[in-house]
């Protein structure tokens, strides 16, 4: 269908230019809202940052005081004929301005940890990535073949899927205490939580994908003389590999959502530890920076996998695509995942 210049065309694609404008706006609008709240003094700003404490005994420079308290203290000072405090409107500490967070995205990596045994930010991130990697890898090593097996043989499906169907409703974090008891307080129970969170969904999703494989292809292969083994390795698996690949990308995204809970189990570690510590030090811009890093890593991984998939499966390709074109496709809603 041809793109339409009508902004409200029903299920119609927009021209390239308009599409890109909207993509930019989808990120720019939340950012603008954030800027508005942060930089325009009469919007929100419920606090006052003290520039000059005057003669209020407990005020200090740079202190954040609620507007009401600030006004009350200054009234007291005025009535007593003492010097009033000076200050400017400010937001609470948990909402740092965009430029602060942008700075923190760099400085957080450069700031050495406060305590000698604490990890740097990049070490925390790497630790988190390794937890995700091992949890997801272990799950896939078992889940992928099992899912293909279930999708291929009814016997395997009837034997395993009913139980898995039941088990997947059990929230993975509920197994935290058990995992710690069995595996100690370090990385093992965290990997186990990611595993539990991923594995059961994975088997079911992949089994379904394999079952969706076109039976006509299977029959065509049979009439060409393929044996059962050849049907599995030459038709069933290659026939569903692209959909399985996309399933895996979505599942990897789910694995990330279990990360924070997993890292809280036993000895807190990784990016969760970093976030908690920075929260304790009230370095909220670092907290925002760390959360954004998770999003950036997740998105970047998925993008890279999308691009890789495009190169791994040439028959799905509509043409050679650069990473950037993959990215543009990716943020279009009609992108088929």
């Amino acid at each position: 269908m041809k793109p339409t210049r009508d902004w409200l065309g029903l299920r119609r694609e927009l021209p390239e230019g308009r599409r890109n404008v909207l993509v930019v706006f989808s990120f720019a609008l939340p950012l603008m809202l954030w800027c508005l709240v942060s930089y325009v003094p009469w919007i929100w700003h419920p606090m006052v940052r003290i520039a000059d404490p005057g003669e209020v005994s407990y005020f200090q420079k740079e202190m954040l005081i609620e507007k009401k308290v600030f006004a009350a203290e200054n009234r007291t000072m005025r009535e007593a004929g003492l010097r009033q405090a000076q200050g400017s409107p400010a937001n609470p500490i948990f909402l740092p301005a965009p430029h602060k967070v942008a700075q923190a995205l760099i400085t957080a990596f450069q700031t050495p940890p406060r305590l000698p045994n604490e990890p740097w930010l990049h070490e925390s991130l790497l630790h988190s990535i390794s937890i995700i990697f091992w949890g997801f890898a272990l799950s896939s090593i078992i889940g992928l073949p099992l899912g293909i097996l279930c999708g291929t043989f009814r016997a395997a499906s009837r034997l395993t899927e009913p139980f898995i169907e039941f088990f997947r409703y059990l929230p993975a974090p509920a197994f935290g205490a058990l995992c710690v008891a069995m595996m100690g307080i370090h990385d093992a129970p965290k990997i186990a939580i990611i595993f539990i969170g991923t594995f059961f969904q994975q088997v079911l999703v992949i089994a379904n994908t394999v079952r969706k494989n076109d039976p006509a292809l299977l029959e065509a292969a049979q009439t060409l003389g393929a044996s059962r083994r050849q049907l599995i390795f030459r038709v069933i698996i290659p026939g569903s590999i692209t959909d399985i690949y996309n399933d895996m990308r979505i599942l990897l995204g789910w694995a990330w959502t279990y990360l924070i809970v997993a890292e809280l189990i036993g000895a807190t570690s990784g990016i969760t530890y970093f976030i908690n510590q920075q929260g304790r030090y009230r370095n909220y811009e670092n907290v925002y920076a760390a959360i954004m890093m998770i999003g950036v890593i997740g998105l970047a991984t998925d993008l890279a996998l999308a691009w890789l998939g495009n190169n791994l499966f040439p028959w799905k390709r509509q043409g050679q695509k650069s990473l950037w074109e993959t990215a543009l496709d990716y943020i279009r809603p009609d992108y088929v995942k």
Binding site: D214, A216, E219, A220, P238, G239, I241, F313, W315
Partner: peptide, 10 residues
């Protein structure tokens, strides 16, 4: 067959 049954990955 009437339906196209070529293996799309080959």
């Amino acid at each position: 067959f009437q339906g196209y049954t070529l293996f799309p990955w080959l």
